[in-house]
Computed example of a mutant assay.
Amino acid sequence: MIYESTRSITSSSVQEWARRFSAREGGATWELSWRPEPLLTREQARDAMELTELCSTGAEPGARAADLAAELGITVQYVMAVLQRRRRERGTGS
């Protein structure tokens, strides 16, 4: 489940997060814990957190994940690799 406030977007199932970084032109004011650049809009940050959850289940992420990744200009494979590396760094996964 994803939780949203005016300053952060978190998840009950993953340790990653999005937070409002600062006020900037163009509405891109959010950063992700696993991808601090580029800054995102709130909607993009919400989509990225949904994608994070989908890529962290251990199951095939599916078409929704592919759609979200495409909207963010990345691939599901990239997201899964970054999240796996972060889990290893934290000692919480292989």
Rank of each mutant, 00 (worst) to 15 (best):
Met1Ser: 04
Met1Trp: 03
Ile2Lys: 00
Ile2Arg: 02
Tyr3Ser: 05
Glu4Tyr: 06
Ser5Ala: 00
Thr6Trp: 01
Thr6Gln: 06
Arg7Thr: 06
Arg7Trp: 00
Ser8Phe: 12
Ser8Arg: 12
Thr10Val: 11
Ser11Leu: 01
Ser11Ile: 01
Ser12Trp: 00
Ser12Thr: 11
Gln15Thr: 07
Gln15Pro: 12
Glu16Val: 04
Glu16Lys: 04
Glu16Met: 11
Glu16Tyr: 10
Trp17Thr: 02
Ala18His: 06
Ala18Ile: 09
Arg19Phe: 11
Arg19Trp: 10
Arg19His: 13
Arg19Leu: 12
Arg20Cys: 11
Arg20Asp: 04
Phe21Pro: 00
Phe21Cys: 09
Ala23Ser: 14
Glu25Lys: 14
Glu25Pro: 14
Gly26Met: 14
Gly27Arg: 13
Gly27Trp: 08
Thr29Ile: 12
Thr29Gln: 15
Thr29Lys: 08
Thr29Glu: 15
Trp30Arg: 13
Trp30Pro: 12
Glu31Pro: 05
Glu31Ala: 13
Glu31Ser: 13
Leu32Met: 15
Leu32Ile: 07
Ser33Ile: 05
Ser33Val: 02
Ser33Gln: 05
Trp34Val: 03
Arg35Trp: 11
Arg35Phe: 04
Pro36Gln: 13
Glu37Val: 15
Leu39His: 11
Leu39Arg: 13
Leu40Phe: 08
Thr41Leu: 05
Thr41Tyr: 06
Arg42Gln: 07
Gln44Cys: 03
Arg46Trp: 09
Arg46Pro: 08
Arg46Ala: 11
Asp47Val: 05
Asp47Ile: 02
Asp47Gly: 02
Asp47Ser: 06
Ala48Leu: 00
Ala48Thr: 01
Ala48Lys: 03
Met49His: 04
Met49Tyr: 00
Met49Ser: 00
Glu50Cys: 02
Glu50Lys: 05
Leu51Asn: 07
Leu54Thr: 02
Leu54Gly: 00
Cys55Asn: 00
Cys55Ser: 00
Ser56Leu: 05
Ser56Gly: 01
Thr57Val: 01
Thr57Leu: 05
Gly62Thr: 02
Gly62Cys: 04
Gly62Arg: 06
Arg64Pro: 02
Ala65Arg: 08
Ala65Gln: 04
Ala66Trp: 04
Asp67Phe: 13
Leu72Tyr: 12
Gly73Ile: 11
Ile74Pro: 09
Ile74Gln: 08
Thr75His: 09
Val76Leu: 08
Gln77Leu: 09
Tyr78Cys: 03
Tyr78Trp: 15
Val79Tyr: 03
Val79Gly: 09
Met80Cys: 15
Val82Lys: 15
Leu83Gln: 15
Leu83Asp: 05
Arg86Cys: 12
Arg86Leu: 15
Arg86Lys: 14
Arg86Gly: 09
Arg87Val: 08
Arg87Asp: 11
Arg88Lys: 14
Glu89Arg: 10
Arg90Ile: 07
Gly93Val: 06
Gly93Ile: 03
Gly93Cys: 05
